[in-house]
Design a binder for these strands. Structure first.
Lengths: 104, 104
DNA sequence: CAGCATCCCTATTGATACTG
DNA sequence: CAGTATCAATAGGGATGCTG
């Protein structure tokens, strides 16, 4: 989907290259914002934050994406019933801050 | 693609609703940034800013999207050869500013 | 130059059903 | 509860060729 940054392209264009693919995915930015808002969020909380709008497969995929990108941290507690908590990493928080201006 | 905002959803999620669909489209944010960078941009300038990476149909579509969203203004000069210039509207500039933090 | 129309292809998303 | 697997639907994007 994305290509190599072009050396002759404006820097403003190049700079977006890295994050853009991830952030363009559905609910990606929203998840970052919601987790930032909640501080820590469980899977179910995210699901209900979006109402019935997200399918579990999509939400799962997006969470994986964000964890892989090191924006989100996944903490799993081996209890019954199972509990998983997502929090923003440093990078995630930094992104959330940069995202906030977009909310107005 | 997008649904009605849910009254019980976190405001951070609701607030993104409006812009998100548009900004998620390929090259949308980049175009805003490039036009902001250049001040005013012709179609061909945008095309070359992205190298050969954008097809003309996609670039066209995205420009239309942005014009429809009132983020970009299209000024057409009836000359031969034809000349078209794109500039950011007030909203567009405002968005560009909010986008800038993302570039770091 | 600055595009639009068409066709087609792929990536992404959603629905549904099932599991540790 | 917190997912995964599978399948089907779709929207977005690229290639190509043509216009004012």
């Amino acid at each position: 989907m994305s290509q190599q940054p072009r050396p002759d392209a404006p820097e403003c264009y190049c700079r977006l290259e890295g994050v853009i693919d991830l952030l363009s995915r559905k609910y990606a930015m929203q998840i970052v914002c919601v987790v930032d808002h909640l501080g820590t969020a469980r899977y179910g909380e995210l699901e209900s934050a979006f109402g019935g709008d997200v399918s579990s497969s999509t939400l799962s995929a997006r969470l994986d994406d964000l964890v892989s990108a090191d924006l989100l941290e996944r903490e799993q507690y081996d209890e019954i019933p199972p509990r998983v908590e997502y929090t923003l990493t440093g990078d995630g928080e930094s992104l959330a801050e940069r995202l906030e201006p977009l909310l107005r």
